[in-house]
Design a binder for these strands. Sequence first.
DNA 1: CTGTTAGCGCTTTCAC
DNA 2: GTGAAAGCGCTAACAG
Lengths: 343, 343
Amino acid sequence: MPTIKDVAREAGTSIATVSYVLNNKNHEVGEATRLQVLAAIERIGYRPNINARNLQASRTMLIGYAWHDLQHGQINPILDQFIYHLAQSAEAAGYHLLTFTHDNAHWQNVYQDLIKTRRIDGFVLSNTKRDDPRVCYLMSQGFPFVSFGQANPDWDFPYIDTDGSSGVAEAVNHLIGLGHRRIAMVAWPEGSLSGDMRLHGYYKAMAEAGLPVLPDDVQRGEQDEQTGRDALNVWLNRPEAERPTAVIAVTDLIAIGVMTAAKAAGLIVGRDLAVIGHDDIPLVQHLDPALTTIRQPLTEISQATLAMLQPLIAGEDLPVRQRMFTPSLIIRESCGAVLHNKA
Amino acid sequence: MPTIKDVAREAGTSIATVSYVLNNKNHEVGEATRLQVLAAIERIGYRPNINARNLQASRTMLIGYAWHDLQHGQINPILDQFIYHLAQSAEAAGYHLLTFTHDNAHWQNVYQDLIKTRRIDGFVLSNTKRDDPRVCYLMSQGFPFVSFGQANPDWDFPYIDTDGSSGVAEAVNHLIGLGHRRIAMVAWPEGSLSGDMRLHGYYKAMAEAGLPVLPDDVQRGEQDEQTGRDALNVWLNRPEAERPTAVIAVTDLIAIGVMTAAKAAGLIVGRDLAVIGHDDIPLVQHLDPALTTIRQPLTEISQATLAMLQPLIAGEDLPVRQRMFTPSLIIRESCGAVLHNKA
DNA sequence: CTGTTAGCGCTTTCAC
DNA sequence: GTGAAAGCGCTAACAG
């Protein structure tokens, strides 16, 4: 593999000159020698050794991203898309993504190692929980990072998030436009930030439309299909005239449970019951009926994440330390068409 | 950030000695000084700069993995699991995964850059096609790589793959055990290596069981749900006594299409028609009925991939350059129970 | 404008 | 057993 020395010899100059034409900053190089060097570089197929470069600049051009825990079969397709676009944004800026894993017990060792061995320049976090210890740790270390998702509302750290509230509100309004009045929601257990935001959008839109929310119109449960099934069964126990005609689920997986239970009860989803999910995970467009859902603008989110991380790595201050993005409603079959004689 | 110099000063030794206790090879260090150094390291929280280390060793401890193209919404959950486990195996060996992306047009530039800038030590390929140009390119460059999936059968390069043939054969035999005689298959278009392997398992198992395969018992189509629907509709056009009672699909997505079409035709999957998919992608256990499917041993595969890549990076020869793994049948509801009065 | 040189932080001969 | 010193390949003063 050719080094800068080989180029210098080939071009008949010094290595400094080669470096100058490569880094081309405020240091001018004579046009003749410049061409000479460029030709030599081309001829021997030289590429600067990135490792040497990084050592000297004491950086790595690597961004760390912790893989979400796949151990429990808990795949999160949203995040796959997020990483992909994040990788693209990173590459556009000359960075690369270093993806790493860690079990729940030893996360701190892993992050510490990455930092202290100078393996990476910054982190991108996702899947953050309220009071997420990683956020806490990175803040205390003063190490550059940006989080996709919030943590403790009292902490001031750089994050980007989707405005789940507005997404769900849009869903509610869409259902109202379709003629629905009795709209219910399946949420996560209390305490999840994004879950609470989504639920808040529901309450807000219902209130603004002057629609009542019965005490058990909101059902809560874990992130699995069973939660959706259980919720619908609760509602099916009500007299028919009081049953919700539409259900919004906090995630697609839960929406699937709702649909399954509805079918089991002889209801036709899209006609007898409207269902809307959240996230537009793969396959839900192939469900029967295809699921109407709320999609986060992951491409923009990843771009913004990197745009925030870069100045942080450069040691600059961030003018805006938090950014929210608005999701959009993807209308498919499961929310049906205009409701007739039902209101 | 402390360097080796700081440790040396703190311990009252030379930097060489510090390096010796760290790398601890055939170079003996006096117990007293050793403890001294260790204490100093502990005291100031020193970790060797990995970049400096790598420059000197001219390696990076980074393994490149090209993200599969997510542009067209073509998510491949199998690969997500593969990367995750690959990352784990890599970390266990002191490596990290550098995940990168590239559009179809410029893949060669991306790979070339990664190689020539000495960004990484080796590649892991996945999603390989027959005559995959990346395989071809990396072979020509003599750069270390291992592929998850085959390419041109005439090329001799290190790969690991799943024996799709045995997986499908197992599925066929399971169906036969359930009493099925008319078993059909939905395959990919001719020319895909893994698709052909899976199909081969079908033919083989049918032949061994002495079961006939009608000309259109095998339907082919692209990797989408429609393919499954179309296939089933072809078979439904036959007189009832000649219709398949069981269908094996080359992937879960296609199996979903089969199930959807079956339901649309008033059939109850698991009772009137058995359906088996391939890959066990997330969510298929939540379908109604839950999909029986064939699962690849991704953890073992990732481990084996890394185990092959390591000697390659070290410049050693590989005793075994190809390894095949046997998938397993995950039995759920969609293939039903024993068939009665149907044969 | 171009070349010499001193590091970046580490490993590893080679003397002592 | 320990230390001085020569790089790994590159960048950036500093001279010329």
